[in-house]
Design a protein around this nucleic acid. Structure first.
Lengths: 232, 232
DNA sequence: CTATGTGAAGAACTTCACAGCT
DNA sequence: AGCTGTGAAGTTCTTCACATAG
C-alpha cells in the first residue's frame, strides 16, 4: 500500500497533540478570528508581522505556532488568507459540525443558550436538560427543557453528540460529568466552579466566569505594569 | 517614622504583582472556592494535600502559590480554613464591593446580566448600556438599558466604577474600550473576540467563550493522553 | 512524626537570530 | 530583498527534596 496521497506533503505535518503547547492551540483560535475577518473583507495575504499587529501576539510566536502544523506561508511574501483559514479550521477540527448538549437550564445555562455565538462557529445545541420539575417542559429559545432522567436515554439513541456543556450547580456537576462520560461524550465544557474528575481520554475544560473578574480585582488592587494576556 | 504597625509581620509578605505568575493568581481563585465551600460545611482545617485533592492542583504548587503571599499554614498541621479564606479574599482584593457596568445588551450582555453568579462574589452591576435605539429603555433584570451616549456622563458622575464589561460586537469593542479608559475605568473584561489595545496601567482581560469549544474540538479531533487544566 | 515553606533542579514555553526559499 | 521556518538561547513556571517548625 503505497498510495501517493498517503505520503505526507511537505506543507503539512502529522499532528501529535501532546507535543504542542496548550497555549498554541488557544492562540490558533485567535489567528482564525483574524483571518476570517480579513477574508470577509477580501484581503488575500497576511504576514506574521500583520497577524501580530492584529492579535498582539509576538510575530516570532505566530510563526512558531503555525510551524508546529506545517509550512503554510511563502517566504518573502507571507500567508495566503484563504489557505491559512482552511488550515486553521482543519487543524482545530472545525470543518464539521459539533453536536452539543447543555445540561442545566438555570441562569447560566439559559444565558449560554440565548447567547448564540457558538452556533455559527459550528457548535449546534441539540438538546437541553435540567433536574428541576418546574423547568422541565419550558422553552429556552427553540429548545424544550428535558428531564435529566432522559439524558442517558437521549445519549444512547443519539450517538453522535460530541460535546456536553455542564451548567449545573457545583453539587451535581461531578454526577453529570460521570453520566456524560459513561455515555461516550468525549468533550466536556464545565461552567460549574469546581474541578471535575474525568478519565484521561475525555477532553475536559473548565471555565469560571467569576475567576476572570477576581483576577482583575487582584491586579486593580495591586497595580503593576504587567500586561495581561488575551483570553485569560 | 518607625511605627510598629508598618513592620511587616512574619505571616504576610508585601505583594509585588509582577513577581507572581499570572497562573498563580488564577489558581488562588480555585483555592478560594474550595475553602469557602468547606468553611460553610464547618470544616476548620485543610492540608495542601487535601487542597490538592479538591482542586487537582499539585500540592507542591499549592504551597508555592500560597508562599508568595506569606506563611499562612502551621507546620505539621495545615491551614486554618477561616484564616486562609480571609487571606485569599484580601489578596484578591475581594473584601470590598466592585462596582461594574455592562456595555452591550445583545444576547451575550443580557446573558451575563441574567447570570447572577458575579453578584454574590462582590461584583455589583450598576448600569447597562447599548447603542441600539430599539433596546434603549428596555429592562434586563432590574436594569434599564441606557444609551452609550450617556456612558461618559454616567462615568463622570459616578466616579467609583472599577470594572467595565464589554459585550459589544467586534467592530465597536475598541471604541468602547477607549471610552472606558478615558473615563478612568481601571479594569476591563472583554467578551468581544478581538484583542484590544489599552494602556499598560489598565487591567485588561479577554474571554472568548467560543475559544474553549474550539480547543475542545482540537483535542477531540487529535486524541491524546494530555490532560487539560482547569479554567482554561 | 507530620506537613509547611523554599532554594535548587527540571520542564515547558517564548524569544531570538539567522539560514533557507521565493 | 523580504519574510518564513526553526534550532538554540533565554526565561518563566513547575516539581522536587529537604530543612524547618510545631
Amino acid at each position: 500500500m503505497t498510495l501517493k496521497s498517503v505520503v505526507p506533503s511537505k506543507r503539512k505535518k502529522p499532528i501529535d497533540s501532546d507535543q504542542i503547547p496548550y497555549s498554541t492551540i488557544s492562540r490558533l483560535t485567535q489567528y482564525l478570528r483574524v483571518v476570517e475577518k480579513l477574508d470577509e473583507l477580501g484581503v488575500s495575504n497576511i504576514s506574521s508581522a500583520e497577524l501580530s499587529e492584529e492579535t498582539k501576539i509576538n510575530s516570532f510566536l505566530v510563526r512558531k505556532d503555525l510551524s508546529y502544523f506545517g509550512e503554510f506561508g511563502t517566504r518573502g511574501v507571507g500567508y495566503e488568507i484563504p489557505v491559512l483559514r482552511d488550515e486553521l479550521k482543519s487543524i482545530l477540527g472545525l470543518n464539521r459540525k459539533h453536536k452539543t448538549i447543555v445540561v442545566g437550564a438555570g441562569n447560566l445555562g439559559r444565558a449560554l443558550i440565548h447567547y448564540r455565538g457558538f452556533l455559527d462557529k459550528g457548535f449546534e445545541i441539540e438538546a437541553v436538560f435540567d433536574s428541576d420539575p418546574e423547568k422541565i417542559g419550558n422553552k429556552v429559545e427553540e429548545f424544550t427543557i428535558e428531564s435529566v432522567f432522559n439524558l442517558e436515554e437521549f445519549l444512547k439513541t443519539t450517538p453522535d453528540i460530541s460535546i456536553g456543556i455542564i451548567a449545573v450547580p457545583v453539587a451535581s456537576a461531578q454526577f453529570i460529568a460521570n453520566l456524560l462520560v459513561a455515555n461516550n461524550i468525549r468533550g466536556i465544557l464545565n461552567f460549574a466552579p469546581v474541578a471535575l474528575e474525568v478519565p484521561p481520554d475525555v477532553v475536559y475544560s473548565s471555565v469560571d466566569l467569576t475567576t476572570h473578574l477576581e483576577i482583575i480585582s487582584f491586579y486593580i488592587t495591586h497595580p503593576t505594569s504587567y500586561k495581561m494576556g488575551y483570553a485569560e
